[in-house]
Design a protein around this nucleic acid. Sequence first.
DNA 1: TCCGTATTGAACT
DNA 2: AGTTCAATACGGA
Length: 186
Amino acid sequence: MKIHFVELPISTCDGQFTARYSEKGLAELNFPPVGRASPRAANSRRRGNESEISSANGLVKDSSRRLLQNTIRAWHRATETALKNILAGRKPKNLPPLDLAGTEFQKSVWRALRKISFGKTKSYGEIAELIGKPKAVRAVGGACGANPVPVLVPCHRVLAANKKLGGFSGGLDWKRSLLAREGIKI
DNA sequence: TCCGTATTGAACT
DNA sequence: AGTTCAATACGGA
């Protein structure tokens, strides 16, 4: 059975983000396309491009599909609010359910990221400790880079051990900016 | 199996 | 204060 995604835009003063939902929750959040030169959003990768709102053969499924769409609309409102809050430098209160596709290792890293509270930071090494694999520091970096839902899953709060910036899949400017909005000085 | 990585800490200039 | 380097776990091809 094929998995369907619903793709919805979020307009902010920082540009148009794109959210993608599975039937389980928010699966992906993409940064606004950077320049006109770049055809791809900074964060879009893996996972096919199929994003269809309707399921193929329907009849019986029609009402449950409507139900799902209403659910997704509610999730989207939560995503929108949370994103705009964080962009405005305010702690988001509600997140939509997340449906993050990845290996067990990656999911454990992303779980750890979510425990970093607003306005705080941790190092790649500390995340490695938290998930019980103190030596997997570089792999943690890899998992951060594979985070499908940046900003809401706060990979930008992970710095290198020397409190220097490290990297960011959406571009270091975004990382600096997000940290600044949370009042974090580097 | 081989290669790259959003690391790290030590040992060097 | 900057540079090099090896150790390192994981994921993708």
